[in-house]
Amino acid sequence: MLVSLVIGTAGSVAFAVGQGDFEQASAALQQIARELQMRGVNFESMGDIEKHRHDHEHETAHTTVGQT
């Protein structure tokens, strides 16, 4: 499975898989992130693994708290 990493100069890292099923792709992304962490890359934030259908539509669940 081919994984793309886009590494910015300020510490941003974007991981992406273009082909395959979501479960396998998710496992591959977790594996790469784990290897980087084990070898000294300290992530201050790590986003959820999402499906990326097009620019503004991700398969994520949203809720709102603190509003009456």
Partner: peptide, 17 residues
């Protein structure tokens, strides 16, 4: 980042001195 990816994740690492 292209459209129609199977999976995508973004992260921010500490760029250590």
């Amino acid at each position: 980042m292209p459209c129609n990816l199977v999976a995508v994740r973004t992260a921010k690492a500490v760029v250590d001195p």
